[in-house]
């Protein structure tokens, strides 16, 4: 029971990190970056392929590679698409996502790659007679630390202020001196860092990396940011958290019926969207075409 609750919270935290990465980029350029999945995947590959080095070195390397790929996406594709219909950008991100999946398949093979990453984070320990897995605790602690750091960055720093300003009104923010190219690059870089964090947590739980590794979590976080409210980063994080908690709880509660967990989750998503089309944290409705 305790373990189930911890699992639910840790999955929620993980999804909120992924949702935050998507939300950052969406905020500054109205782009739903579906290829965020491939950032998580490349981070996971890097972690597994550099597993023989000390964890700190491997992590540093992973962050560098992931941020590099994120910036590459921005410079090669998204920068040229700025200002076009968001639907076109979304579709382009699907295309980019497919390109990267296939490139990974050519580079690393279609079969899963695996290695033991951070073995000391596996296993479980006992508290008051209850057995608890270390990874769920680590996930929760890591998520809280990262969310606090992100919160600080967004609420207290100049970069955060610019990100919030650009999310609220990109044109006005530019007129007031926000440098759009630099800011968008920063958003992509940050989303790369977040993808690396997500990958670290995912790899501890499941070190079998295939070219589609990041797909599932990205789709579900995408659902999360929409039900949370795409207009704000808080909404994104909250939505991701809800999706994670609900999915994990459904898996526990449904027993044999857990194969239908996704159906119940999606039905819940539909209900939330019908009641609050702009998301849970929205203030009034705004017509936007995607």
């Amino acid at each position: 029971m305790v373990q189930s609750i911890l699992d639910a919270i840790s999955l929620g935290g993980l999804y909120s990190l992924a949702a935050l990465g998507l939300g950052l980029v969406f905020g500054v350029m109205r782009l739903v970056n579906f290829a965020h999945a491939e950032l998580i995947t490349i981070a996971a590959y890097t972690l597994v392929l550099t597993a023989q080095f000390p964890l700190a070195v491997s992590l540093l390397f992973t962050v560098i590679v992931t941020v590099f790929v994120a910036l590459l996406m921005e410079f090669s594709v998204y920068r040229r698409l700025r200002g076009v219909n968001p639907a076109i950008m979304l579709i382009a991100s699907f295309g980019l996502s497919t390109v990267l999946q296939r490139v990974y398949e050519l580079m690393f093979g279609a079969l899963p790659r695996s290695a033991v990453v951070a073995p000391f984070l596996r296993g479980d320990f006992k508290v008051a007679g209850l057995s608890i897995t270390i990874s769920s605790i680590i996930t929760i602690v890591l998520t809280i630390v990262i969310l606090l750091a992100m919160g600080y960055l967004i609420e207290k720093t100049s970069l955060g202020l610019q990100l919030r300003a650009a999310s609220a009104d990109f044109k006005t923010a530019r007129l007031l001196g926000v440098r759009s190219n630099r800011l968008i690059s920063a958003a992509f870089g940050l989303s790369g860092v977040l993808a690396a964090c997500v990958a670290l947590i995912l790899v501890i739980q499941n070190p079998q990396i295939s070219p589609y590794y990041g797909l599932n979590i990205t789709i579900l976080s995408l659902v999360g940011i929409v039900i949370g409210g795409i207009a704000s980063l808080r909404g994104a994080a909250l939505g991701g958290f809800i999706v994670g908690v609900v999915l994990s709880s459904l898996n526990t509660l449904l027993g044999n019926g857990r194969v239908y967990a996704y159906s119940w989750l999606f039905i819940l998503v539909l209900v939330i969207l019908l009641v609050r089309p702009g998301g849970l944290l929205s203030k009034g409705s705004e017509l936007e075409r995607v």
């Binding site: 929409v226 998503v269 539909l270 969207l273 019908l274 089309p277 702009g278 017509l287 936007e288 995607v290």
Partner: peptide
Amino acid sequence: RLNGLAAGIA
């Protein structure tokens, strides 16, 4: 009844 991204996700 939905618009934009919400309609896409729904």
